[in-house]
Design a protein around this nucleic acid. Structure first.
Lengths: 225, 225
DNA sequence: CAGCCGCGTCAAAAACGCGTGAAGAAACCC
DNA sequence: GGGTTTCTTCACGCGTTTTTGACGCGGCTG
């Protein structure tokens, strides 16, 4: 189920969107201002953000930048201002689409489908990988093969997904912490050590000498297919 | 350079877009109708399609479907019709964005940047250099080729990167120390001797007679491609 | 031809980062 | 509400990397 974060300070719009989106089987979170939007995004990891630019506490563009600093989640901007400069600023800050009020709900829904459709497959590299004797399917979040059943916790899934999404690429500890734990993390390398060890114990045939979940000392980690 | 295919049957719009896009250093192809648009897309493989819905020969949605049958190229739709149903149909057929006329060129350009930004990261090619039998990729920080695996430490990477960034240029010891070790360093030439020797041992075919990591006595070091 | 400077090399000390175990805190699920 | 899973936090040992010091060789210079 797609999680949507709706950021708007006008209760009636929030309410209307919530009803409409829930009817379409979206999972809806809401935030009334920029600060709580950034917080909610870090906490709930939405698959899509619908952002009203007229927020009480900060510039909409700042919210976009705050999100883009650590996540590539699709952002659709709602705005009462139809000016060209506003649109350009928001889009160049990292927004994926810009809709001016008043707008039709049908159109918003269609644009939501469009940006999520585009964002999904960008995470390339088929949704299944193999590590040692195990086959990992990200679409169903299941691990098959191996001697006995393997279950991964949410954090473990997220970390493994980020690694597997960029096969062969070196990902810095900071980068991984930002993406998996959230924007306020970046130096807690002990978390990474902990969870990499767990993934290796669960997936690698010889956890002491990993062949797929590799450490690049002082630099980061790498997934080798 | 980004290749754009502009599909429109109104010559003045095509002309205006062509001029504007060329000024922004886009490579522009044009097609006046749906059939030739599909043909041009197959032939020229554009990175982006700007598609007017009011074509003489076929429905705009059909053009989108025809493209989506075999390519994921970003599609931005231009249309005179502002109706919600039209937008939904186009977006659900596979379009990435929908702009209603009249539109500002700035907005179109911003939306073009937004959709290409999404589509880009799939096709990236990192900067690579070759030293002896080894191929060094800085984007993934990997060394391939050669007899056995080569691993570089962070300092080694940084030093090699600074050398490779200015191929053929002479870099003084002071300059390298400042860049790699930090502003408070500049006289510790023994560090450089140490690390240059290590890089040569790891990468050069004959470390005693380096062919790429060269010493310029009393002056500095040079990377020869 | 002798002296000097800079470079490559070796070796050892210091610092750093990683893996691991264990335990408390928090969240979650009946 | 109790029990279990999951997450966070801390500390220690070990291997690797970095730093540091010292030595010998070779070319340039006087």
């Amino acid at each position: 189920m797609t999680r949507v974060l709706v950021v708007d300070d006008e209760p009636q719009i929030v309410r209307a969107l919530r009803i409409n989106l829930k009817a379409r089987r979206y999972e809806v979170e809401t935030a009334p201002d920029g600060a709580s939007a950034l917080h909610a995004a870090a906490h709930h990891r939405p698959d899509l953000v619908v952002l009203d630019l007229g927020l009480p506490d900060m510039e909409g563009v700042e919210v976009i930048r705050g999100l883009r600093g650590w996540t590539g989640v699709p952002i659709i901007v709602l705005s009462g201002r139809a000016g060209s400069a506003d649109k350009v600023a928001a889009l160049d800050a990292g927004a994926d689409d810009y809709i001016t009020k008043p707008f039709g709900v049908d159109e918003l829904l269609a644009r939501m489908r469009a940006v999520t459709r585009r964002a999904q497959p960008g995470d390339e590299a088929g949704p299944v990988i193999t590590i040692g004797a195990h086959t990992v399917d990200f679409s169903t979040r299941t691990v098959t093969g191996g001697d006995h059943e393997v279950r991964l916790t949410p954090r473990e899934w997220e970390l493994l997904e980020h690694l597997a999404r960029h096969p062969g690429k070196l990902l810095s500890q900071y980068h991984l912490l930002q993406r998996v734990w959230g924007p306020q993390y970046g130096t807690e390398t002990n978390y990474l050590r902990q969870y990499m060890a767990r993934l290796r114990r669960k997936l690698e045939t010889d956890p002491a000498r990993p062949r797929h979940l590799l450490t690049e000392p002082a630099m980061g980690y790498r997934f080798a297919p």
